[in-house]
């Protein structure tokens, strides 16, 4: 049966394209590779219930996704950080209004090799000393990070500078988005970082929590202490629980999708969004991320239904230590 379909399609494909009436049943999503697995899972389930609607998902990164989104080329864009001022401006210029919808949490894990016996936790202050731009060429040995750690080289592994993970980490640790030392091994592919750290006793690296969970046997995770006792005292181990209840700070971040207001007028887009928020809490867990509290999904859905445009973060990009639920509550109560 399938080969026949393939042949028929080949024939149709070679014939001149007729009209664009399929455009109306297409939901076009693009953006962050971090958020991709969630949107893929939702799209897969959605297509089972709505056979006539086609959902396509691309990966062009959070920044690349916003570029297309603000030109009106996509209906929904995946983002691993809130929209930045330059992107707010681009969307205004392109006449694209949008609703910001948080869909999940992700933790960023600080990881070493299991043969590393000395490091059992790390503080935010130490991470800052290690990753800030001034550390380049200076903080190159473990003993420089914390006195008492061995006088041996430290080998750093981290995300590529185009990723949302990099943006969030630098904002949370260095205090300035997109600013860090440059002398570390970087890769856009977290599996490459996993490989590197798993085979280097002197390594320290960071990547999404899901990659640690899948490689527990080959890596050691460092609990992080933010020095603020009111959200959990001492070093906190990253886990679904500590990310969700806001104690693993500041390295927990929300993930988003942005939907264009104009696209929401189309029934297939609004029913896809409704489906997204209904199914997220189970599907998010399945693909390795951490669901928001149930109340947050209800609030997010109200936000979509009432077409509340703009960003919860005031269009200022990554912000640290925020509770999505509280932000949504506040936004829902605010006068329109």
């Amino acid at each position: 049966m399938k080969p026949i379909i393939a042949l028929a399609v080949l024939g149709a494909g070679l014939a001149p394209a007729t009209g664009c009436n399929e455009q109306s049943t297409l939901v076009r999503v693009d953006g962050s590779s971090t958020v991709f697995p969630i949107t893929e899972a939702v799209a897969e389930e959605f297509q089972k219930t709505a056979q006539s609607v086609r959902v396509t998902v691309g990966i062009s990164g959070t920044g690349g996704g916003f570029q297309k989104f603000c030109r009106g080329e996509t209906d929904i864009t995946d983002a691993s950080r809130p929209i930045k001022p330059s992107e707010v401006e681009a969307c205004r210029a392109g006449g694209v209004g949008y609703v910001e919808v948080p869909v999940a949490y992700d933790g960023i894990a600080i990881v070493t090799n299991p043969r590393n016996t000395w490091a059992t936790s790390i503080t935010v202050e130490e991470l800052r000393r290690l990753w800030q731009p001034e550390a380049q060429g200076h903080v190159t040995r473990w003993s420089r990070v914390r006195p008492g750690w061995p006088d041996r080289e430290i080998h750093l592994f981290g995300p590529g500078v185009d990723s949302g993970t990099y943006d969030y980490f630098t904002e949370a640790i260095v205090g300035k988005e997109h600013s860090s030392r440059g002398d570390y091994t970087s890769s856009e592919d977290d599996n490459v970082l996993v490989q590197g750290i798993a085979s280097d006793e002197l390594a320290l690296g960071l990547f999404g929590l899901a990659y640690y969970e899948e490689n527990r046997g080959r890596l050691k995770v460092l609990p992080v202490d933010d020095g603020e006792p009111d959200n959990g005292a001492g070093p906190i181990v990253p886990s679904a629980e500590t990310v969700r209840n806001g104690t693993y700070q500041p390295l927990s971040r929300p993930l988003f999708i942005y939907v264009a207001s104009r696209a929401l007028e189309r029934p297939e887009v609004s029913s896809f969004m409704r489906f997204y928020l209904e199914k997220s809490s189970s599907l998010v867990r399945e693909v390795g991320y951490i669901p928001l509290p149930d109340r947050a999904y209800v609030l997010a859905r109200e936000r979509v239904d009432s077409r509340r445009t703009g960003s919860l973060f005031g269009g200022r990009g990554s912000q640290v230590g925020v509770s999505i639920e509280a932000l949504l509550e506040r936004a829902a109560e605010a006068p329109r």
Binding site: I5, A6, V9, A12, G13, A15, P16, A17, T18, E22, D30, F36, T39, E40, A43, E44, Q47, R54, V55, T56, V57, G58, I59
Partner: peptide
């Protein structure tokens, strides 16, 4: 794209 759940059917 990366996720497409249909076979392309036109140019």
């Amino acid at each position: 794209l990366t996720y497409v759940a249909f076979v392309p059917d036109s140019l």
